[in-house]
Each structure stands twice: as structure tokens, then as C-alpha cells.
């Protein structure tokens, strides 16, 4: 047990880091979800121009590592003259990045509804807007919720990358303690345990949602 003494000294600092991680993830998830839904709608219902714009966006985001985008935002922001605090800079980049993956999830949810649902809604005289609002979205969001939750867990893990560009959160906090205590194994394991608690909780919640989707109401 003596080997884990450094962890006992640093745990409060680590938990504060975890708080920052959650704050960052939460701040990114909201706009990512909103943009994801918009992108999905543009891809499913948009005209040719909108569709190809979305496809291009997805191609670029899916093909470039998040770390590259974060690093260069960090270097480029000061050059562009936009006065954005680094925290909001990385939140913006993470939101735009994850919006692409969220849009795939929502699009799959919309497209996996059987044709009969559209037919029934149209035959009842619903306009497109009403149809989306009361028939399509409630079901599509429900179908999309399990993969959405696991994407959120992914996003929480991905926040660790911002430590590389110098922002302070759980991973950065653990590196600072390691520099003081020279006990990397224990401290990083402790940080991993905290990440695990957050992400595994989300994973369990996602599994619960999935069982609800599979078995109906």
C-alpha cells in the first residue's frame, strides 16, 4: 500500500482535474449534438449542394486526427487575431469534430425508420415539419441514443488530448503530480481509474438505453 502514497496526496488535485474534464466535455457535447443534428438533417433532407457539402465535411473530419486540429488551433488562433480563450478554442474544435460523428449516428437513426412510418404520417395529412416533429424525430432520437452515449464517452476520453496543447484538466493534472512525486505508474493509474468511472458509467447507461430500444416500451 505504501507505493500508492503519492496517489493519496494527489487525489484532490486529480479530482479537480476530473471536474475540469467533465466541464470541457459537457461544454463540447451540447454544440456537438446541435451541429450533429443539423448536419444529419442537411444530409438526409437537403438539396444536392447541401448534401455534398456535408459529405465533404465528414470526409475531412473523419480523415484528420483530432490532435492535429487541436494543435493547429492552438498555434493558429493567435495568428488569426481572434481573441478566444484557449478553453473555448478547444471546446469549439472538439464540438465541430464530434459533430461529424454525431451526425452519422443521427442520420442512421433517421434512415433506419421503416418507410411505413413516413407513409402513415403523410397519409394522415401531416406536413413535413409536423411529421418530423411528432413521428420521425422522437423515434430517430430514441434509436440514436445508445450510440450517442458511447460517443459522449469517447469525447470524454478525447479531452485528454488537450493536455498536449497545454490546457489543464485531468491528464495535465496527473502529469503535474507525476513531475512532483516521480510516481508515474500510481498517478496515471489513478487518473485512468477516474476516466474509467466516468466512461464506464456512460457505457452502462448506453447499454441500458439499448436494451430499452430493443425491447420496446
Amino acid at each position: 500500500m505504501k507505493e500508492f502514497a503519492p496517489l493519496l496526496h494527489g487525489y484532490w488535485y486529480l479530482l479537480r482535474g476530473a471536474g475540469m474534464t467533465l466541464l470541457m466535455a459537457g461544454a463540447a457535447i451540447l454544440p456537438a449534438t446541435a451541429c450533429g443534428i443539423l448536419l444529419a438533417m442537411a444530409q438526409v433532407f437537403g438539396n444536392r449542394f447541401a448534401r455534398s457539402a456535408v459529405v465533404g465535411y465528414l470526409f475531412i473530419v473523419r480523415g484528420i486526427p483530432l490532435l492535429v486540429l487541436l494543435t493547429f488551433t492552438y498555434y493558429l488562433l493567435p495568428l488569426t487575431g481572434i481573441d478566444l480563450p484557449p478553453f473555448w478554442g478547444v471546446v469549439l474544435v472538439m464540438a465541430l469534430y464530434y459533430a461529424a460523428f454525431m451526425s452519422e449516428v443521427f442520420r442512421a437513426g433517421i434512415l433506419s425508420l421503416p418507410q411505413g412510418q413516413w407513409d402513415a404520417a403523410r397519409s394522415l395529412g401531416m406536413t413535413r415539419r409536423l411529421m418530423l416533429q411528432i413521428v420521425i424525430f422522437p423515434q430517430a432520437l430514441r434509436l440514436a441514443s445508445p450510440p450517442f452515449v458511447s460517443l459522449c464517452a469517447n469525447l470524454v476520453k478525447a479531452t485528454s488530448l488537450v493536455s498536449i496543447v497545454g490546457l489543464w484538466e485531468l491528464t495535465m493534472a496527473s502529469r503535474e503530480i507525476v513531475e512532483r512525486t516521480l510516481a508515474p505508474f500510481q498517478i496515471f493509474l489513478g487518473a485512468a481509474a477516474i476516466y474509467f468511472c466516468i466512461c464506464y458509467t456512460l457505457a452502462l447507461y448506453g447499454r441500458y438505453l439499448e436494451s430499452r430500444v430493443l425491447h420496446g416500451h
Binding site: G116, Q117, P138, Q139, R142, H217
Partner: peptide, 8 residues
């Protein structure tokens, strides 16, 4: 043919 009730 396939009923198409709204499941939610």
C-alpha cells in the same frame, strides 16, 4: 399492409 402504427 404493415399497420405502420407509431411505436412511440
Amino acid at each position: 399492409q404493415s399497420f405502420n402504427l407509431f411505436p412511440h
